[in-house]
């Protein structure tokens, strides 16, 4: 009873926050806040795709930036080399999807039949390889300096990009919710809990894992495309390990296996980064905010492995227990 009530409260607060986010741009002129929130949405998508791997399937990836970067580069390159139009924007996104599918299929088939660390290492290796390619293949990628490109007219308006990112995030949240509750999603969750048993039940675990890896890759590449569009600039830093760490941090802090957790985590991490780097101008120690995020991350893994959302879930469970005891004693 109480749990249902609490769930309803969480649901309502989610809707209220969504409404607040919808009217926010009309009540506040702050341009930097608008950009920051757009960033939160984009990284929310990225972190959700990571959560599909880590939280739902139990796959650890240390090179998830690979797909983010693929999306960013394909969109940027298509818009830069061909005309700047909506159709080219969609072509760029589709190219990103295609590349992400191929790469994640290859990596998945190679490493997902082995123990978990093989996937982690192979993705890390591939992301480093792509980073080097982006830096050295100058004729196409413009090397380490990156390149700017013109976004289609309708995506030049910051306000429109804000709503576009928000709508994308909500859509992908709903789609992933449906996906994780589908029969495939249930198999994935079973794999994360007991892989051997799922195999014994006659499921080909490898195929399901590869599917999860491909879906996560495609969604990450979409977030990369959005990222490129907001900056109208791409450089090799999209392939850097910091991107992967961001996704990992957001997912862990928000709560693995919850989908809403990564979005919350994205908000927490982005705002922390923003304010810590501001503090850095006054107190030099905060210039190394990555250190604080790293320490926070370790504390979360060791102390609160379920993240913020997990803590709330524990809380509501405990409340339910207490109320049951209360009723018994009454």
């Amino acid at each position: 009873m109480l749990a249902a009530k609490l769930n309803r409260i969480y649901g309502y607060s989610g809707v209220i926050i969504l409404l607040l986010l919808l009217i926010f741009p009309f009540t506040n002129d702050s341009r930097s806040m608008l950009i920051l929130l757009t960033q939160v949405f984009i990284f929310g998508i990225f972190a959700m795709s990571y959560d599909l791997l880590l939280g739902y399937t139990g796959i650890v990836s240390f090179g998830h930036c690979l797909f983010f970067g693929i999306g960013a580069y394909s969109t940027g390159l298509v818009l830069n080399t061909f005309a700047t139009s909506i159709s080219m924007f969609f072509l760029g996104i589709c190219l990103g999807f295609l590349l992400a599918t191929v790469v994640s299929y290859i990596i998945g088939m190679l490493s997902l039949r082995l123990q978990s660390h093989f996937y982690a290492m192979l993705t890390l290796g591939f992301s480093e390889l792509f980073l080097v390619i982006a830096e050295k293949w100058r004729s196409v990628t413009h090397g380490g300096d990156g390149f700017t490109f013109r976004a289609p007219a309708f995506l030049q308006d910051r306000l429109f990009v804000y709503f576009f990112a928000l709508a994308s995030m909500v859509m992908i949240f709903i789609l992933l919710r449906l996906f994780t509750n589908s029969s495939i999603g249930k198999v994935l969750r079973a794999i994360s809990q007991n892989e051997a048993r799922v195999q014994a039940l006659g499921f080909t675990v490898l195929h399901y894992k590869v599917i999860a890896s491909i879906v996560a890759g495609i969604i990450a590449s979409y977030s990369g495309a959005l990222y490129a569009i907001t900056l109208r600039f791409v450089d090799p830093s999209v392939f850097s390990i910091e991107m992967t760490l961001d996704a990992l941090l957001m997912t862990m802090i928000g709560g693995v296996g919850t989908l809403i957790g990564p979005i919350l985590g994205s908000g927490v991490v982005e705002f922390l980064q923003h304010y810590l780097s501001q503090l850095g101008s006054q107190f030099p120690i905060f210039e190394r905010w990555t250190l604080f995020l790293g320490l926070l991350y370790i504390v979360v893994i060791l102390g609160f492995p379920k993240g913020i959302v997990g803590m709330f879930q524990e809380l509501s469970k405990r409340d339910v227990k207490e109320s049951k005891n209360y009723r018994k004693s009454a």
Binding site: L54, G58, V60, F62, S116, H117, A120, L245, L248, M252, G294, Y297, I298, I301, L302, P305
Partner: peptide, 9 residues
């Protein structure tokens, strides 16, 4: 999984 994650941190 937690080992992988914590050593990366």
């Amino acid at each position: 999984i937690r080992q992988l994650l914590v050593t990366l941190g």
